[in-house]
């Protein structure tokens, strides 16, 4: 079983549309994991059935038991996050500001403060219209993606892939270069970098590739909207060559992306287009790169 992770650094490059197309093409052979929980949109294209859902707990927030509080104000004094305002003469916790450091709970002389683990979202296991098993998550407002959540989604996907003997796990990776993306990459066999030929796109590609390189993972790149700016596209190609990253495909600027999305379809389901053919070829190429 091989783990393929799709990442892009910045948003709006078409990463999710491309990942969903691969998921569609892979069908029964793959398990899909959506680790892009900040903008978890893949379910809009895959029509998951939410067969199994489970609450996800992460991070702690302080809670003050008013019956035990002696109103000494020590908690408010040590809190660096302005998270303990006095409302109606009571010390209260502002949950948006509380960072969960636990300092107040530790020093409260009346033991009136407890740290409560937060229910921050849900993890779902679904069957999709393409015949995949899909593991995906949703987070509540103000909840951060974390290495923990990504590890959880990936673990479920892996267990299912092992149990049902699947060939591939395809992971829609987290954005940025922080803890969640490290967790997305950890354990991967192959990385697909999705980028676009804009000044910002190139900059972000270089940044996220540093991580991939550090983890020694084989990588390939898809340049979306490649014909939008020939000069930058060329710069990207040169970068890939220098780093020995396979240039899997250059996709044209094509509104089929949006048109397909608008009717809830992946690119490869939506009519006949040049784009569709390139994406199909890309998946074949990726399979070859991963297994060799």
């Amino acid at each position: 079983m091989k783990e393929i992770v799709v990442i892009s650094g910045k948003g709006g490059t078409g990463k999710t549309s491309i990942t969903a197309s691969i998921a569609y093409l892979g069908g029964k052979d793959i398990v899909v994991a959506d680790c892009d929980v900040d903008a978890a949109d893949m379910h809009l294209l895959m029509q998951p059935d939410f067969e199994k859902s489970e609450d996800f707990y992460s991070g702690e927030i302080a809670e003050i038991n008013q019956d035990e509080c002696i109103k000494c104000g020590k908690c408010k004094d040590v809190c660096r996050f302005n998270a303990i305002p006095i409302i109606n003469k009571q010390y209260t916790i502002n949950s948006l500001n509380c960072e969960g450091c636990g300092y107040c709970a530790r020093i409260c002389p009346a033991n009136a403060i407890t740290m409560i683990e937060q229910n921050v979202g849900k993890v779902h296991i679904s069957n999709t219209k393409a015949g995949n098993i899909m593991v995906h998550a949703e987070l509540g407002i103000g909840a951060d993606n974390s290495g923990k959540l990504v590890a959880k989604v990936k673990k479920e996907a892996k267990l299912l892939a092992e149990k049902t003997n699947k060939e591939f796990i395809v992971i829609d990776g987290s954005p940025g270069v922080g803890c969640p993306v490290v967790s997305s990459l950890s354990g991967a066999d192959f990385v697909i970098l999705v980028t676009e030929p804009t000044v910002a796109g190139l900059h972000d590609l270089e940044r996220v590739y540093q991580l991939v390189k550090k983890f020694n993972i084989k990588a390939g790149c898809i340049i979306n909207k490649a014909d939008l700016n020939g000069n930058v596209a060329k710069e990207i190609e040169e970068f890939l060559k220098k780093e020995n990253v396979a240039n899997i495909a250059n996709l044209p600027y094509d509104e089929t992306f949006t048109k397909a999305m608008t009717v809830g379809q992946t690119i490869v389901e939506y009519g006949e287009s040049n784009l569709k053919n390139i994406v199909i070829e890309s998946w074949d190429k990726i399979k070859e790169l991963v297994t060799n």
């Binding site: 992460s58 991070g59 951060d144 974390s146 290495g147 923990k148 959540l149 590890a151």
Partner: peptide
């Protein structure tokens, strides 16, 4: 370690 959000 599963319970650690960050710093695993």
């Amino acid at each position: 370690i599963e319970g650690e959000a960050h710093g695993a």
